[in-house]
Design a protein around this nucleic acid. Structure first.
Lengths: 258, 258
DNA sequence: TATAAAGGTGAATCCGCAC
DNA sequence: AGTGCGGATTCACCTTTAT
């Protein structure tokens, strides 16, 4: 089932896959829905559970349990010489980072995706939230070998060692997948440039890559463009369809950038 | 005991302070770096790494317990309309961020200190680790009021809304405190520009600021320069002495930058 | 005295293989 | 697992020394 997007919850699909199957994992997990609802509440209008610490804790606990399940499975299907990337924002990345450390993952870098065109803070109550964090980890602290194409990254960076800060625009323009009405097909489509750096830095041609939250299929598209194999897992059939449609088209503009 | 550096472990000193005393807290706790071995540059010179006793913890649990203690006390002595900043690296910030969320703190921003001159990765096995993270939090999600001098930050940023990425050099040159032999007096002295942004963005003149890990006294120095009051807590007497010595000198170059 | 060259250094979880 | 060794490996900025 190589080079496919499987429809299903990764917590159910991953247990059907053998130990040490993948050379690389890229995971872009969802936020806790309950947390997001809390975030979206109108300012200063408090919802019933404000003082209910139990409710709050149960929200975190539910998200933590969800992450623990898919992360444990990811660790199992990752080769002992493989690495894993997990992207998130300040809403979830601290919980995930702490959990990964406790599981035995060893952080290699905390990459900062520095958005060149972030959404401004309209009310002027905070600094413009301009980054997302991508954790790059090996499977254990003792792990000796992993793929890092240092010289290629250095070349991409004009001959100087590439830093952990990646200045990349949000996915907009022609790259952004939209329906006939111009409505974006996926709310959090990641830019190809981001996946290009992930895949070219930490895999070799022919390697097998897993994306347990495939979404619009950026990981699969970039993997295909660069001769890597992939397996995507995606819960919603409509996103599976979108990803397959996307994979039909060659994207030479990615290859031009090498 | 205003505008003083108290010598002692903040876990013992803070319980002697009344509830809701401080308008702002800036905390720069030990990072628990857990360095594995010595590191040499390509020219074979040894890197003078952080190897202080105050940064040694036996395991995650010990570090977590330590952080839980000082964070709980900080939350108690912070005014209900105050905010707290905590700086760390990928070695500790995920543990701290998760813990703070669980305690009820509400993250306003995850500021990225983007070092303009970070130490390179000499072995070429990772990306240059170029950032530290500073969490800016209010005391609870329900908290309506807190100080954010939006217009001043905008002015500092050339008229555009300031982003959560702060490009600031490491503390070197004349600003770095050194003994007569040229040896750095503190292994992790923070740049004044960093504290300037923290203090000017989130306090007003006359506010009272706590730094529970005072170290070389950068927080106190910048607070004094900008007419804020401070209380520092520092475990080691030698650093207390260094900070007081530093406070004797006016630093007009900070004020020039307004 | 001015300019150029050389040297030092910073919160870092920094090699891989053979024996 | 401990040791030894071959080989690949650095950026920005400041200070000191040399021309």
């Amino acid at each position: 089932m190589i080079n496919q997007i499987v429809c299903g919850d990764c917590r159910q699909v991953l247990p059907t896959i053998a130990d040490q199957t993948f050379d690389l994992i890229f995971a872009d997990p969802p936020y806790n829905l309950q947390l997001q609802q809390e975030l979206r509440r109108p300012n200063n209008t408090l919802v019933d559970a404000v003082n209910d610490d139990w409710d709050k804790f149960s929200d975190f606990a539910e998200y933590d349990n969800f992450c623990e399940e898919w992360l444990m499975q990811c660790r199992r299907v990752l080769k002992d010489n493989g690495t894993i990337w997990v992207i998130g924002s300040y809403h979830n990345i601290f919980r995930i980072g702490k959990m990964m450390m406790d599981m035995g993952f060893w952080i290699l870098n905390d990459i900062q995706w520095y958005k060149t065109n972030p959404m401004p803070n309209f009310r002027g109550v905070r600094f413009t939230n301009a980054t997302e964090t991508i954790l790059w980890c090996k499977k254990s602290s003792e792990q000796k070998k992993y793929t890092f194409n240092y010289q290629l990254m250095k070349k991409f960076n004009g001959g100087k060692q590439m830093k952990s800060v990646w200045e990349i625009p949000l996915c907009t323009g022609k790259e952004r997948l939209r329906d006939d009405a111009g409505k974006k097909l996926h709310s959090t489509q990641k830019p190809q440039e981001l996946l290009k750096r992930v895949i070219l830095s930490s895999t070799n041609p022919g390697d097998l890559i897993l994306d347990p939250f495939s979404g619009s299929g950026t990981t699969a598209a970039v993997a295909k463009a660069f001769g890597r194999n992939f397996i995507g897992i995606e819960k919603e059939q409509k996103y599976v369809d979108i990803a397959y449609e996307r994979l039909k088209f060659i994207q030479p503009e990615i290859l031009d950038l090498i």
